[in-house]
């Protein structure tokens, strides 16, 4: 069971959180300008790499804030977490 550091509330056990998929995938500013293929890529295609991966979590049972976590998908190490608007290098 992970212990995830909520950037607001501090470290908590995993059941308090909800997973939200890959981070830094913005909803397109004007979807109508995208081709079917571009739109489908936004909807359905995500990275699935070994190593450090930026992903979204929501502190559902706590402050309800969405934030980002850097997790090593190979070792399960949680490298750090950072707030929406911050960048992966801000993770701690």
């Amino acid at each position: 069971m992970f212990e995830i550091r909520c950037p607001y509330c501090g470290p908590r056990d995993e059941p308090e959180f909800k997973y939200g998929g890959q981070a830094h995938v913005a909803y397109p500013a004007d979807p109508e300008l995208l081709s079917d293929e571009e739109w489908a890529r936004f909807l359905f295609v995500r990275d699935n790499s070994r190593g450090r991966y930026a992903e979204r979590w929501n502190h559902a049972a706590g402050c309800r804030r969405w934030f980002n976590v850097i997790r090593d998908t190979g070792t399960h190490e949680l490298v750090g977490s950072y707030r929406v608007g911050e960048q992966p290098e801000d993770a701690r």
């Binding site: 909803y27 969405w66 929406v84």
Partner: peptide, 17 residues
């Protein structure tokens, strides 16, 4: 109920803060 609120917060916090 809970899922919709999380989803609304998601857009509010991350897309349209």
């Amino acid at each position: 109920a809970a899922g919709v609120l999380d989803w609304m917060e998601d857009f509010l916090q991350t897309e349209w803060p």
